[in-house]
Structures are given as C-alpha cells and as structure tokens.
C-alpha cells in the first residue's frame, strides 16, 4: 500500500512537469509529434531508472560513509553523462534499430533536469521525510519517469491539433499557446491534490 501511494503521488499528485516544472524544454520542444514524444519518453524512463539506481548506490555506500555529501552534484552529473554515453555506445553496437529510432534524444537526456533531480531526490530526504530504502527508491524513480512520459505523450497529441488550428492569433503560435495549454492541464491535475493526505 505504501508503495502504491508513493507511485500515485509521483505520477499524478506531484507530477514532475505540471507541479514541479522540471524538464520543460523537451516538453515544449520535442513533444510536437507523438512519435518523437514516444521515443523521448522511452529513453528517459530507462535512463532515469538506471541512473538513479547508480546514484543512490554511490551516495549510500560511498559518499555518505566517507562524509563527502557536498560532492553529490558533481558525482551525479558525471554518472549521468557517462551512463548516457555508455547506453548510446551499447545500443549503437547491439540494438542499431532502437538506436536509430531514438536518434538525437539520447544525448539530449544528459541535460534534462528530470534525471538529475530524481537522482538528487533519491539521495536526499525530501520524498518521504527520511532516507529512502531500496524499494522506495525504485518505486519513486520509475513512477516519476512514467508521470513524465504520460504528460509529454498526451501533450504531443494536443500540440498536433494546435498546429493545425487557423483561429490562433499570430503572437500565440508556438511556445506561447503551448505554455498556456500546459497551464490548463496543470489546473486539471490540481484536482488530484486531495487524493493523498
């Protein structure tokens, strides 16, 4: 039950895009076609899940015992950058079809703030109020990435409709209307607020 609540809270109640405003650039930029959004979110779920496992392990078994907590940021960003590079090389060699379909999105993920934030979250105490255990960490990182995927895939279909709209005033075309639509989506997601007390 505890894990289910944790997952629902990460996916719906405090959704990483709509209530925590993370990963907005790809949200507005990449999700212009559903196909791109799918590729991006697939790659992101994998990278978030794996890199938070590595970051969590490094923090718990290396940085904390040695009292090097202040190196968290530098250590994690290095882990993420090299992990993404590694995944890219691995896929290019062994799964070329998937590599082709993900294309440019994989290297872009390094600078996606979702990955770094989830890594910092699982190493800190902000999620449940105390240090996470392995189960909580796995649930939280997977659920956050799924919440991200949910929104950017859904939003990409809305963007398709907006691009074909002829009623839109000129200055609103592009990013402006995308942001306002995201605001309306966020309003709808506020309804989940009362779900978990």
């Amino acid at each position: 039950m505890h894990y289910l609540l944790l997952a629902i809270s990460a996916i719906l109640v405090s959704n990483i895009i709509l209530t925590r405003f993370l990963g907005i650039c790809p949200f507005v930029g990449v999700s212009k076609s559903p196909k791109n959004a799918l590729g991006m979110s697939g790659a992101l779920i994998g990278v978030v899940f794996m890199s938070s496992i590595i970051s969590y392990a490094i923090n718990r078994y290396l940085l904390e015992p040695l009292d090097l907590g202040f190196l968290k940021l530098i250590a994690f960003i290095l882990v993420i950058a090299s992990f993404v590079q590694f995944v890219e090389m691995f896929m290019k060699r062994y799964i070329p079809s998937l590599y082709k379909s993900l294309g440019i999105y994989l290297p872009l993920i390094t600078t996606n703030c979702v990955v770094l934030t989830v890594a910092l979250d699982v190493a800190g105490t902000s999620v449940t109020g105390s240090l996470l255990n392995w189960g909580e960490m796995l649930t939280y990182s997977a659920a956050t990435a799924v919440g991200y995927a949910l929104i950017i895939i859904g939003f990409s279909y809305i963007q398709l409709r907006m691009q074909n709209s002829t009623l839109l005033p000129k200055p609103f075309k592009g990013n402006a209307i995308a942001l306002i639509t995201a605001g309306l989506m966020a309003m709808a997601f506020m309804a989940f607020n009362g779900m978990i007390v």
Binding site: P171, F172, I177, L179, I180, G183, L184, M187
Partner: peptide, 22 residues
C-alpha cells in the same frame, strides 16, 4: 501563485514579447 498560473503568465508574456518584437 500556484502551478497553472506560472504556465499561463509565462505563455501570455511570451505572446506579448513576440507581438511587440513583430
């Protein structure tokens, strides 16, 4: 002051900036 307002204000200001620039 909460999240929807952030998106909406940013969107409106962007549109205003684009209009002024044009």
């Amino acid at each position: 002051t909460v999240s929807p307002g952030a998106f909406i204000v940013y969107g409106l200001l962007t549109a205003a900036f684009v209009a002024i620039n044009a």
